[in-house]
């Protein structure tokens, strides 16, 4: 849960950090990733591992392409205005949700896990697939870190994040950077969804919880901070799971929201975010 949440929240954090766009439709990209994973996985009959592999590649690509189109058709035309894009992404949320309901239906459908084994610890057993999800998420997070910190594309993204106008004055085509970041953010959500769908099932309303938790993670961790996002995702994801099991899911959400309120009051830039100067 925490590992997948880190991926989803990182996508949201990247989009806000670089583009200053609060993507309310981020959870729907997650949902779409899961629904497409179900569709891709069902293309291959009798070989769940291959079906899952196709979904893991195909679903993020389709979701990324859709985000690219949304960026060109909607966000770019609004000149990435922070207020206007909130309204626009709310619209995107409902469009994607209703499209999923129309073409996929209201049922929750499972995707068979590509591998099934159980790791037996001395005091309890644990699903092997869940450990695979943690490892896969860690690899993707590491990949994003390498992209941001060690490549030319990452440098361009960071420069655009810090100062859009100056970046333009040095030849950076900011609109292309924005399109790429929006697609990357959506793809991260889709990867997270593909990884989680063998555990949670694909459902047209499944984007709401990840969106809320991603916002909480991003605010607590600090916008645009990869380290903060990962730490906050682990903390929020694990505490959400533990409190939900031992007390109630509602209490888990109440405590998480309370944490956000405290962070906003005492450390508005988040635990790891840089303070605006």
């Amino acid at each position: 849960m925490a590992a997948v949440l880190a991926l989803t929240a990182l996508g949201l954090s990247l989009v806000f950090g670089v583009m200053r766009v609060v993507n309310v439709a981020h959870g729907e990209f997650f949902m779409l990733g899961a629904v497409l994973a179900w569709w891709f996985a069902n293309l291959v009959v009798g070989n769940p591992a291959l079906g899952f592999l196709i979904a893991l590649v195909g679903s993020p690509l389709v979701v990324g392409a859709l985000a690219l189109v949304a960026d060109r058709l909607v966000l770019k035309r609004l000149d990435y205005n922070p207020e206007a894009t909130i309204v626009a992404t709310i619209g995107m949320l409902y469009i994607l949700q209703q499209l999923a309901l129309t073409f996929y239906g209201p049922d929750a459908r499972p995707v068979v896990a590509p591998i099934s084994f159980r790791v037996q610890f001395p005091w309890f057993g644990y699903s092997g697939y869940k450990l695979v999800v943690v490892a896969a998420s860690a690899i993707v997070l590491l990949g994003v870190w390498v992209l941001l910190a060690r490549t030319k594309i990452g440098l361009i993204m960071r420069a655009t994040q810090y100062d859009r106008e100056t970046a333009q004055a040095f030849g950076i085509r900011v609109d292309r950077v924005y399109a790429g970041v929006f697609a990357l953010g959506a793809m991260l959500a889709a990867v997270a969804a593909v990884l989680i769908v063998p555990i949670q099932q694909a459902y047209y309303l499944m984007g709401q919880d990840p969106l809320l938790l991603s916002f909480i993670v991003v605010i607590v961790g600090g916008l645009g901070s990869l380290r903060g996002t990962v730490v906050a995702a682990i903390f929020i994801g694990m505490s959400d799971g533990i409190i939900s099991v031992f007390f109630s899911p509602t209490l888990a959400k109440i405590l998480a929201t309370l944490l956000v309120a405290m962070v906003l009051v005492y450390r508005p830039q988040g635990l790891f975010g840089a303070r605006d100067t």
């Binding site: 030319k152 440098l155 361009i156 420069a159 100062d163 106008e165 970046a167 040095f170 030849g171 950076i172």
Partner: peptide, 20 residues
Amino acid sequence: RRLFAELTVAENLEIGLMTR
């Protein structure tokens, strides 16, 4: 100046070099 304050000196120069 409008430097990219969080980037290193080398990275700021790299930004200048990317275009031409």
